[in-house]
Write a protein that binds this DNA or RNA. Sequence first.
DNA 1: ACAATGACCCTGT
DNA 2: CACAGGGCCATTG
Length: 128
Amino acid sequence: MDSAEFHESVYNVVRQIPYGKVTSYGHVAKLIGMPRHSRHVGQALKFVSPDTIPPIPWQRVISSSGTISSRGPGTTGAQRQKEALEAEGVEVSEAGRVNFGVYGWFPDVGTVDIGVTLEDEANDDDDT
DNA sequence: ACAATGACCCTGT
DNA sequence: CACAGGGCCATTG
């Protein structure tokens, strides 16, 4: 799994988050089979540009605590994310928190097409 | 090779 | 709920 494939998997999963729903970095990491790489999911998402086709709804990925992660003081990323979510009907509290009980999307691992053949990676024998 | 960093996560106080 | 500490792991200086 290269970083390129990692990104692909992340994008594929994120694209499948239903409109008006949100999930967490950690869950995305689990879905692509790398539960320890929650931080890198965010890293992958920051490479996303609004011009990407098909579009990647990066705003639907927040922290496991249900809050929008701050990109640091002076940045507007978190603010844009909040507005983007509200634009699709997701309620975001003033503290930047979303009610997972209502808007959470946490499908079981294996029920989501990650777009990468992880199932065939064990098949490397050279049958003649 | 080492140290620091990051759109994270979990547990404990 | 707020805060602190430890763990995690690829990337960057």
